[in-house]
Structure formats: C-alpha cells, structure tokens
Amino acid sequence: MDKPVNNRAWLLVAPVFLIVAFSAIVPIMTVVNYSVQDTFGNNQFFWNGLGWFQELLDPSTELGGRFLDALWRNLLFSAIILAIEVPLGILVALSMPREGWKVAATLVVMALPLLIPWNVVGTIWQVFARADIGLAGWAINALGIDYNYTGDPLAAWITIVVMDVWHWTSLVALLCYAGLKSIPDAYYQAARIDGASRWAVFTTIQLPKMKRVLLIAVLLRFMDSFMIYTEPFVLTGGGPGNATTFLSIDLVKIALGQFDLGKAAAMSLVYNLIVLALCWVFYTVMTNTGTERRQEENPA
C-alpha cells in the first residue's frame, strides 16, 4: 500500500534522525577516525591514512591473513548452520501436530530455547559438553569416542554448530509452521484427488506456499549466525587456537586484548560493510519476490 505524499512527515521523523545521529553516526565517525590512526596507548594517536585498510585487505600481512581466516570461518559457519537448520526446521514443521491440545504443548516446547539468553546458552553447553563433568561430553567419551572441545578444533566446531542448531532451529520451524498453517485444506484434497505423491505435495504446494516465510527465516538465521559472538566466546573463547575465532571475537581480541584501536576500527568498518552488502542482497531478493506476490493477488 502506498503512503500518501506528505512533507510534514519529515518533520515528525526529525527527532529520530537526531537520536540516530548521536547513537550511531557519531560513534561510527569515531570508529572511522580511529581507523585512519595508530595508537600506542596513553591516548596518543598518529596518522596512518588508509594503512590499516591496505593491510586488512592484503592476505599476505598478518592482519590481512587473520581477517581472511576469520571471514572464512564466519561464512563456513553460516553455510553449515543454514544447511542444517533450514531443512531440519522444515522437517520439524511438517511433523508438528495441526490441531488439538498437542499444538499448544509443541509450540511451548519449541519456543523454550528461543527464550534463553545467548550467554546462558553458551554456559549451558559449556558445562553440558565438558568431557569430565558434562552429561553429553562424558557420555560421548564413555561410548569410546575421544571428544574434547577445548582441545580438538573439530570437536569445538561440532559443539558450536550443535549448540546453534539446538538454539535456533525452533525459530525456522515456527516460521515454517506458520506458513504451512496458512495453506487451505482444499489444496491437500486437490492433490490427493490428482494422485500426487507425498513428495509432489511438498514440492508443488507446501514449498511454494512457504517460500516467503522461508526467505525471512534464511535472512534472520544468516544475519544472526554471521554476527555470532556470545556463545563461542563463552564456550571456547575462540579456541582451541584460533579454530573458533570468528570475526566478532577477533575484533574484540584486537580492540580490547591488544588495544590496537586503529586495526580494530578498520576491521569493524569492513565487517560492517560486508554485513550491509549481504543485507542489501537479501533485501533485493525478498522485495522482488514480494512484488511478484502482489501482482499475483491483484492482476489488474
């Protein structure tokens, strides 16, 4: 629906602009300021121009290599998460009950992980997966599998992925469930009459009708997993070694651990730009599907 053109609207949003200016633009400008300088502490700054950026984007340097590694880790993590959570979420949604008291019960259970704060999730899994006292860690070791997420990079990755899947698959499932619920019964009946197989029903009815919510789910999960920080920070602290050092963790290490404000500022700006670019890609994809949809509903 189009909004009427009304210039007074700009006046009304002006306070928001002011607040955003102070809360976002000014801090960002500070970061931009840091990113072109170097500091050795004592609040002394030296002009460095685009030096940090050059270093950052050149993988042969220490900083560049570090950045690229972390970026790959992030992309890999997001890809794994989406590849597991989306199909799993759809599967869970498909097998959720459609009516009766079970619906409410299932919804509550599904919503539970979503209600737990990130750092608590991290702590829960940190304890849960510990090889010495954690239930899961101990059990796995008892089965004869050598599992220790503090020492083995693969184990650390698996733990973080499983933790994220546990935490967020519900979200995908709930969104898909909402999409499925909106399909009128007549579609299923028609499909039965047409002799469609279960798979055909899924590909020709359920998946197309879920497309829009799925896009939202993918967007949310991608953005969120790409910016992951708290859980791995609590669980592994980025280790063992740098195995689980994602961009956000590395950023904090450089900024607060080494107090390299200039490097950290440049890195956070580039990180920010990557996130924005990906946002834009998703936004374009989603609005395109949106217009298609509107045309369908209003053929005139």
Partner: peptide
Amino acid sequence: LPTEARNIAQVFQFPVVYDTM
C-alpha cells in the same frame, strides 16, 4: 477406499491451482 483410488475429481469453492506451474 482413499480419495486417490476413487476416480473422482473435485472443484473447490476457492480456485486451487499449483502456483508454480
């Protein structure tokens, strides 16, 4: 017998078409 084994066809109140096809 289930629907698919009955050789009947049905037209519903609201048009049911497969959108993607």
